[in-house]
Design a protein around this nucleic acid. Structure first.
Length: 593
RNA sequence: GCGCUCGUAGCUCAGCUGGAUAGAGUACUUGACUACGAAUCAAGGGGUCACAGGUUCGAAUCCUGUCGGGCGUGCCA
């Protein structure tokens, strides 16, 4: 059998499964997990306990039979039965070293690849044109980016698409908002023959003012709202002046958004938007109609997506509003068609707030009913929870507003900068270098504050805690990386080079090797759950063990050169692993801090 | 009303398809810088896993109900 890049746990599972099989039991029972009692063993298998019922046999006997088969296994240092039916396993130090050597000689650190490379489109970001990024855009960007990087690292073919909100009612609102201010502009003159000016009629700042004002007005001013809805429809139907205006808005906005996302290290492969699905709308509507799925109800075009055995009531999806204009269901469905044509994906992931789960349920059902994608194509809503303030309610600034992303980044950067000023090593940096480091630290604080929580749950957004100089924070992880780097640099300056790995000289060292070897399982699980918090946990485990190791062993002054060089090798592997995991979370490591 | 989801240490959160003594961080108490970076490390106290039933050899985890919070529920996204 091909054993390429199996994790330690998987390797053990194979071995134990064979042992179960050899004893006449279902090999599935041989699944091995990391021990939940590290004081007793490194790995465990509980298969004998569940086998007991199936084979009507005392679990102790089964476990003992299997344990007996495992005694000769070279990679196992221990395989013992513990009542009532546990199978406790330790791997040998030699095997741990062997695996560490494999990591050392592999650019991918001996981490696993997906057994089958999938083509995956990830829809995340979802900013709106003419609306500066704010704190509400943070989770989709942070989580989405790390999922994209993880999937890609595992060998999948990934297209990350920002899916710009550039086609909905907000466009009509901005158009009407501008018309209210400058009705004389040629874009509003239906008799204007063109060409339209190449310079935008507004600045980015104007644009960022326009939308909130127009949005607020539409809530009280019915006439204005109606005009905006009409303008939205006209834009979608290609009214030249509006299209020209829209292009200006789009270009101003996208330039700005790219800068903001760059600060967060979020890189989209595609900057497509709702509007890019527009060419597919008619075709999509045609398919729905031809298949007899869509019909008019209360003036709107809808598709029933409810099923007989639904526990919850799933309302029909509205494809076209009674005024003929499109809405998010329309563009989402057309976008599915567009993605199918352009990328032929096995899976499409939507990294979007949990609150939209009903919407996606409707869209996905409709897409499958209409066979816009093959039946086996997975459409998945990767939902996430709300960021709440300390009061448990959605996070607001002190004055009750929504915090802009740029303000947020400035806040965390300033806080990091202040902390750096206290540090002797970081104070040697030039102002410019210090500013760059502070930004990396601040953003890491922000990202870990988010990613450490399970994706699906609401969490309390508490900047003070994220930026605290103690605890499970982004800076803690960066500090460990910076410190290892510093030791390795000093070693090099003294002419020491990492050498041959020796067997672990302490429990801490062994635990560090074990932790390194467990990263592969963590990544596979993070991928299958679409949940990056496991990667954070692995990072804290690694860095915590390194910090302990660092205190217990004085590497550079170690009189035994072979031991010293072995330790240098160990920490260099550790450094690479930490950097790799941080890069999967799109977190950078500063030079100094 | 109906549906979804959550409830774990004072606080913020982990806890993999059911397994052994439920774990981190923080806060609190204490100890470690004339040794590679103390944004660090070590030690201690702190729990009826909301509540009540059920399934199971075995439940924080699965099922039912109750209470409490959040969210959604046809023309915003």
């Amino acid at each position: 059998m091909e054993n390429k890049n199996l994790t330690v746990r998987q390797t053990l599972s194979q071995i134990v499964s064979s042992a179960f099989e050899a004893c006449g039991y279902d090999p599935e029972l041989g699944a091995v997990t990391v021990s939940n009692r590290p004081d007793l063993c490194q790995f465990q298998c509980n298969g004998a306990l569940s086998a007991a019922k199936r084979y009507k046999k005392n679990p102790a006997i089964i476990a003992q039979e299997v344990a007996a088969k495992l005694q000769e296994e070279p990679i196992l240092a221990k395989a013992e039965f513990v009542p009532p039916g546990f199978l406790n396993l330790d791997v040998s130090d030699a095997y741990l070293i062997e695996r560490a050597c494999k990591m050392d000689s592999d650019v991918r650190l001996d981490l696993p690849c997906a057994e089958k490379a999938l083509s995956i489109v990830v829809d995340y970001g979802g900013p709106n044109v003419a609306k500066p990024l704010h704190i509400g855009h943070l989770r989709t960007a942070i989580i989405g980016e790390s999922l994209v990087r993880l999937a890609r690292f595992l060998g999948h073919k990934v297209v990350g698409d920002v899916h710009l909100g550039d086609w909905g009612l907000q466009m009509g609102l901005i158009i009407e908002g501008l018309r209210a201010q400058k009705p004389e502009l040629c874009y509003f003159d239906e008799t204007f023959g063109g060409p339209y000016p190449s310079e935008p009629p507004v600045t980015l700042d104007d644009l960022n003012e326009l939308y909130p004002a127009a949005s607020a007005r539409s809530k009280t001013d019915e006439e204005f709202k109606a005009a905006a809805q009409k303008a939205t429809g006209e834009l979608q139907n290609g009214r030249p002046g509006f299209v020209a205006l829209w292009k200006h808005f789009l270009s101003l906005s996208v330039t700005d958004l790219k800068k903001s996302y760059a600060k967060l290290d979020v890189d989209f492969d595609k900057w497509l938007g709702e509007s890019d699905a527009a060419p597919y709308v008619d075709e999509m509507l045609g398919i729905l109609k031809d298949k007899g799925l869509s019909y008019v109800s209360d003036g709107a075009l809808i598709v029933d997506v409810a099923k007989e055995d639904d526990e919850e009531e799933i309302p029909p999806i509205i494809i076209e509003k009674s005024d003929g204009s499109q809405l998010y269901g329309t563009t989402d469905l057309a976008t599915i068609l567009q993605r199918e044509r352009d990328f032929d994906p096995d899976e499409i992931w939507y990294v979007v707030d949990n609150r939209q789960s009903m919407h996606f349920k409707q869209v996905f059902r409709c897409a499958h009913l209409a066979a816009l994608v093959p039946e086996e194509t997975k459409l998945m809503h990767i939902g996430f929870g709300t960021m709440n303030g300390k009061d448990g309610k959605p996070y607001k600034t002190r004055d009750g507003g929504v915090m802009r992303l740029s303000d947020l980044i400035a806040t965390v950067t300033d806080a990091a900068r202040e902390k750096m000023a206290e540090s002797a090593t970081a104070s040697v940096l030039s102002d410019e270098e210090a500013a760059a480091c502070a930004e990396k630290i601040g953003i890491a604080a922000l990202k870990i504050g988010d990613l450490i929580n399970h994706r699906t749950k609401d969490y309390i957004f508490d900047l003070d805690r994220f930026l605290a100089s103690e605890g499970k924070t982004g800076p803690y992880l960066q500090y460990a990386a910076v410190r290892i780097h510093s030791v390795l640099e000093k070693a090099e300056a003294q002419g020491f080079t990492p050498g041959k790995l020796l067997p672990p000289a302490s429990d801490t060292e062994r635990a560090l090797l074990l932790s390194l070897s467990g990263v592969g399982d963590t990544l596979l699980r993070a991928f299958s759950d679409h949940a990056p918090n496991g990667i954070c946990e692995a990072l804290f485990d690694l860095t915590g063990l390194f910090n302990r190791f660092y205190y217990e062993n004085k590497i550079l002054t170690c009189p035994d050169a072979a031991q010293r060089d072995s330790w240098l090798k160990l920490i260099s592997i550790t450094e690479r692993m930490i950097s790799l995991l941080l890069s999967l979370l799109a977190i950078q490591v500063p030079e100094k801090m």
